[in-house]
Design a protein around this nucleic acid. Structure first.
Length: 119
DNA sequence: TGGGTGACTTGCG
DNA sequence: ACGCAAGCCACCC
């Protein structure tokens, strides 16, 4: 089809829809978004959709984090530190990765216990 | 046209 | 406790 809408697949678009649905002051995990899109086993591709990020202004990728509460270091919008600033500005609670300090985390992770988005 | 890769997650050894 | 492997689906070359 010569339809221009063919540039976006249902899943791809669904990811954007879900991410935009994330309420301010909350965050969601790739797996969480994957389930909401209908592909609980395609969490990998959720990140890929954000990687495409055709609308960074409408798609707050910084609101999408890992299962641990942190996001991709270096591939994000500008840096994990910048993410903390943005999320914190939204009202998201942060906490030092004390549990993952041994794992070598970036240092700060989103307090999923308090700010993980509840569909 | 076909093959390879990837912002993940979970389970098993 | 940690490390490794598999699964998923669409995009890129």
């Amino acid at each position: 089809m010569t339809d221009a809408s063919t540039s976006a697949s249902p899943f791809f678009t669904a990811v954007y829809e879900v991410v935009q649905r994330i309420p301010k002051g909350c965050v969601a995990t790739y797996g969480q978004v994957a389930v909401l899109t209908g592909h609980p086993h395609s969490a990998r591709y959720v990140g890929y959709a954000l990687h495409s990020n055709p609308n960074p202004e409408l798609i707050p990728c910084h609101r999408v984090v890992f299962r641990d509460g942190s996001l991709s270091p270096g591939f994000a919008f500008g840096g994990s530190e910048c993410q903390r600033q943005l999320l914190e500005a939204e009202g998201v609670s942060f906490k030092p990765s004390e549990s993952a300090v041994n794992a070598g985390e970036s240092g700060w992770v989103v307090d999923l216990d308090v700010c993980q988005w509840q569909a």
